[in-house]
Amino acid sequence: MMELLQYEFIRNAIMAGILASISCGIIGVYVVVKRIVFISGGIAHASFGGIGLGYYLGINPILGVLPFSIASALSMGWVSKRSRLPEDTAIGILWAMGMSIGIILVSLTPGYAPDLMTYLFGNILTVPFSDIVLMLVLDAIIILVVYSFYKEFLALCFDEEFATVRGVHAERLYLVLLCLIALTIVVLIRVVGIILVIALLTVPAAMSRQFTSNLKKMMMLSILFGAVFSSGGIWLSYLFDVPSGATIVLVMSVVYMLYSFVKGISS
């Protein structure tokens, strides 16, 4: 593996993998313990509208995703809390709506849409340095917000009603959490793509839960798992010349399933 590191694109890929692991390690823990996997998947898929917007406006699609994913996070949070629709119905509708907007905007864009597949399924081997800088900035924002509101987030995830009674603005804080999920999705798109984002948000966190009952330690461990899995996936995808995003997700899922299987037998 060492000789691979002389290539710049491999170094970028590994750096992107680690930056992605940081954000999904921290936010994934909240997604798993608060059981908001479905709404996170919804935000991710609806963000495809942002990709379409980027193509349509002729800008870097990632810059289109940023506002679009924040907007979908806010509207999903708002609709799921305030509207009379059942939460999962509301999420399902917005999920498909965002993707449809994306498809229409891409089709309205004259000419051929290059690397559309990259955004759907990720390609960590083609991450440009500018995107790494963006990932770094988003990671910094995520860390800063979580550090500042750590005790409120913990109370919100554990017992929203009690948090409210103790004076926490639970609904606003929940929307902040959804926005952090949106930012995490932007960080992850380059790595595994919109469709596979949900694996990175859940597998490392779910696995770390097996080893500790402390939220902070869970975050550290899932960052570590994410980094190891994504580096392993990059190496395997280079070795066998298969898509990197799918390989990373498969490595994670297989390891997690094997671990659960072995644990199930031994207990």
Binding site: V33, R35, S148, F149, K151, E152, L154, A155, C157, F158, D159, E161, F162, A163, R166, G167, V168, R209, T212, S213, N214, L215, M218
Partner: peptide, 29 residues
């Protein structure tokens, strides 16, 4: 609150739970 409403798998210690009772006295940040 009603006891049955808790997620008992939640990774949180007794100490962290009891401290939540102080949230209104501590303030943000």
């Amino acid at each position: 609150p009603q006891y049955s409403l808790f997620d008992l798998e939640f990774p949180v210690s007794v100490w962290e739970v009891v401290l939540m009772g102080r949230l209104g006295h501590t303030g943000l940040l």
